[in-house]
Every structure is written in C-alpha cells, then in structure tokens.
Simulated assay, not measured.
Amino acid sequence: MTTFRVLGMTCSHCVGFVTEELETLPGVESVRVDLPTGMVALVTDRWIDPAAIRTAVEAAGYEVEA
C-alpha cells in the first residue's frame, strides 16, 4: 500500500477525477480517498514509480503534496 496527500480536492467530483486517473496505472488494485484529509491510499500488486503517481494526479488537475 502506498499513501500520499493530494492537494486541492474539495468535493466528490474531485475524488472521482483523481481515482479515475490512478486506476489507469498498471498494478493498481484499489484507490481509497479520504476527502477531508486529502489522503489517498493505493493498494497495488507491484511497486509503482512515485513519478507515475504524481503524473496521474496532475493529469486529474491536482497536486501531490511534496
């Protein structure tokens, strides 16, 4: 499991955009988002490059906290 904070999500639509992008990454089994904290948990069946995660989140229009 990989966890990180996404900045800028304010509603369920935001969660949907981020989830949709992250689900396209190879090896992602599930995505769990806690909107109030911005925390995202990825359950994967393999290691995923953090740069790929950042790119997917940015494609959804948001930012991964550094």
Rank of each mutant, 00 (worst) to 15 (best):
F4S: 03
V18D: 01
G61F: 13
I48F: 01
A56L: 05
G38E: 04
T55D: 14
A59F: 10
W47F: 14
T3W: 15
V15L: 09
M9K: 06
G38P: 07
A52W: 05
T24V: 03
V15P: 01
A51D: 13
T3I: 04
L42M: 06
A66L: 14
P36G: 07
A59H: 15
R5A: 06
S30H: 07
R46Y: 08
H13S: 09
R32A: 12
V33M: 01
V31K: 15
C11V: 08
R46S: 11
T44F: 12
G8D: 13
G8L: 09
A66H: 15
S30K: 06
S30Q: 01
A51C: 07
F17L: 12
I53Q: 03
E23F: 02
M39D: 13
C11H: 14
D34G: 02
S12W: 10
T44S: 11
T19H: 05
P26D: 03
P36W: 00
F4K: 06
G8I: 06
W47G: 09
V40N: 01
M1Y: 11
D45K: 04
T2Y: 15
G38A: 00
R54P: 06
T19N: 12
P50Y: 01
V31M: 06
D34Y: 05
E23I: 02
T10Y: 13
A60N: 08
R32V: 14
E20V: 09
S12R: 13
G8K: 06
P50L: 08
V28R: 10
T44I: 09
A52E: 12
V40A: 02
R54S: 04
T44G: 00
A51G: 08
M39G: 08
V15K: 01
A56N: 05
T19F: 05
G61T: 07
W47N: 15
V15E: 13
P50Q: 09
V33F: 08
C11K: 15
T37D: 08
M1P: 10
F4I: 04
T10C: 14
G27V: 00
C14V: 03
G8E: 09
F4H: 12
R54F: 00
T10M: 14
V33L: 09
V43M: 15
Y62W: 13
A52T: 07
T2E: 13
V57W: 02
T24L: 05
D34P: 01
V64N: 11
E21C: 01
V64S: 11
S30E: 03
F4P: 12
P36E: 00
M1C: 07
R46C: 08
R54Y: 05
G8Q: 07
E29P: 10
I48P: 08
V64A: 07
A52G: 05
E29V: 05
G27Y: 07
T10P: 11
V40I: 04
M39Q: 11
T19I: 00
L7P: 10
G38N: 04
A60P: 01
L7W: 04
A60Q: 09
M39P: 08
V64I: 04
T3N: 13
G27D: 03
V40D: 14
E58G: 07
P50K: 11
E23S: 08
P26W: 06
M1L: 11
M1E: 06
T44M: 13
V43L: 13
A66T: 10
M9R: 13
V64M: 12
T2P: 11
M1G: 09
V28H: 02
A52C: 10
V15M: 09
V28S: 10
S12K: 15
V6K: 12
W47E: 13
T19Q: 11
V31H: 09
D34A: 07
L42I: 01
P50H: 10
